[in-house]
Amino acid sequence: MHIMEGFLPVEHAIGWSVASAPVVAYGIHSIRKRIAANPEQRMLLGVAAAFSFVLSAMKLPSVTGSCSHPTGTGLGALLFGPAAMAPIGAVVLLFQALLLAHGGLTTLGANIFSMAIVGPFAAWAVFRLVRRLGGSLAVGVFCAASLADLLTYVTTSVQLAWAFPDPAGGFMASFAKFAGIFAVTQIPLAISEGLLTVLIFNALARFNPQELKDMNLIDAKEARA
């Protein structure tokens, strides 16, 4: 993730920016609507943004032109819905590009699409699926955060493979190479992020049970636990 400045061809950089823009716009609308109806949730929104900023700033060198790191988007996706993380992730990535030299402005759209769109929607879908299948809260949060992280890097592998297909094997060979290299660092990072997100979520459930119950994230029994 955090594809570096100038690494993608111009047409790819523009294409990913165009693909990300509508989701970011809708996410801004969803946040405004949510906070207008529940102004007390501003603190939780700040926690979600800070969590994503701190975790995604902890990078390890990986594939040429990119890096590996946790994403932190799963927590916010569970609290405020996946669309809300698009503008939050956009701000996080913009500040990291300008202040920390992580990623870049020309590749901002591609990085938003992988980390702030695919990851959060994956987290939300996985959490709902696990809960409907009778999984515990901890299992649901762990699976959501871990898979959001992993699918972010699967998306980045697609983006890089599409931009730089292998001369012999084409897109699939290139994708296998990028994904394979990412997997070395990203699988343990995803597991670690899943465990950390469970700890943070449990703390929120302990100190703000009614708020999480109102968000339909925990039931009455879990709120009393």
Rank of each mutant, 00 (worst) to 15 (best):
T155V: 02
T156D: 09
T156C: 12
T156K: 01
S157Q: 07
V158F: 13
Q159A: 07
L160C: 04
L160M: 15
A161M: 07
W162A: 13
W162S: 11
A163H: 03
F164Q: 00
D166V: 06
P167S: 05
P167K: 08
P167T: 07
A168Y: 10
A168W: 04
G170T: 09
M172T: 11
A173C: 04
A173R: 11
A176K: 11
A176R: 10
K177A: 14
F178W: 14
F178G: 05
A179W: 14
I181T: 14
F182E: 09
F182P: 06
A183S: 15
A183E: 09
V184R: 12
V184E: 09
T185L: 15
T185K: 07
P188C: 05
L189T: 10
L189W: 00
A190V: 04
E193I: 02
G194F: 01
G194E: 07
L196N: 03
L196A: 08
L196C: 02
V198Y: 01
V198A: 06
I200V: 15
F201K: 03
A203V: 13
A203H: 06
A205Q: 12
A205K: 12
R206F: 14
F207P: 00
N208H: 13
N208D: 02
N208R: 14
P209H: 07
Q210S: 13
E211K: 15
K213D: 04
K213L: 15
D214Q: 15
D214R: 15
D214F: 11
